[in-house]
């Protein structure tokens, strides 16, 4: 990153403002994701309502960021690091918004659930949720520090997210196999698990955008991929 400031102070302020809004958006999304994980495990319907309501704040911030980026593009015609920062921020804000949507989607699945989740399913769901939350926290830290090493580490960890998703989904499938009456609950939990995994995919996108922002190049190699739900390998 460049240590020297722009000659035009207002340009510097515009980029700083953009950065601040993205960080703000990141912490809102972080909270929404952790709230939704806690709410699903506790089957807390009141918390679910709040999560659904709070999603609007994220969308609002995303709209502000998008407008700020359009302004920077038209006013400053950014080059090099500034161009990469602007484009990456646009992409990252879009991924954060999608993670917010997925947290809301998890919250929506809470309402139709019975009061208790079967104990045997909680552990792996929690493991998956914890990992994705840690990934999100780490990627926001990496963004703050502009750390490409952290970005790569997070990018590589998505494989583990896939594996935990695979385990969690198989457990739900077994649970369904035991009794067909479990169908409704199992279906909801499959969606929830898939939503958390997809949040992980968006974090991987953010890691890629961040790497591009820092290095001006794309991360080399194919995305690490863990087991699929329906694969036996």
């Amino acid at each position: 990153m460049s240590e020297i400031s722009h000659i035009v102070k207002s340009y510097e302020e515009e980029l700083q403002n953009l950065n601040d809004n993205l960080i703000k958006m990141g912490s809102l999304v972080e909270k929404q994701l952790s709230d939704s994980m806690e709410a699903i495990i506790k089957v807390d319907k009141e918390a679910a309502d709040n999560i659904i309501k709070n999603d609007a704040k994220i969308n609002e911030l995303r709209a502000i960021i998008e407008e700020q980026i359009v302004t920077v593009l038209v006013k400053r015609a950014p080059m090099a690091i500034d161009l990469r920062l602007t484009i990456s921020t646009l992409k990252i804000s879009s991924d954060l918004e999608r993670i917010g949507d997925l947290a809301k989607s998890v919250a929506k699945k809470i309402k139709p659930l019975p009061h208790d989740l079967p104990e045997e399913l909680i552990a792996s769901l929690r493991r998956l949720g914890d990992l994705v939350q840690r990934q999100l926290k780490d990627i926001l830290d990496a963004y703050l520090k502009k750390s490409k090493d952290l970005a790569i580490k997070i990018w590589k960890t998505d494989e583990k997210v896939d594996d935990l998703t695979h385990t969690a989904m198989n457990e739900v499938a077994d649970f369904l196999g035991k009794d067909k009456k479990n169908l409704d609950l199992a279906t909801h939990l499959l969606f929830v698990t898939k939503n958390i995994e997809r949040a992980g995919d968006h974090i991987t996108n953010i890691a890629e955008s961040l790497f591009y922002l820092i290095e001006g190049e794309h991360i080399e190699g194919a995305r690490p991929k863990g087991k699929d739900f329906d694969s036996n390998s």
Partner: peptide, 20 residues
């Protein structure tokens, strides 16, 4: 390359309007 990802810090500072 120069305008997306220049190799030299001075180039970057110049094209992004940071020149001191």
């Amino acid at each position: 390359k120069i305008f997306k990802n220049p190799g030299n810090q001075m180039t970057q500072d110049y094209i992004t309007g940071r020149f001191g």
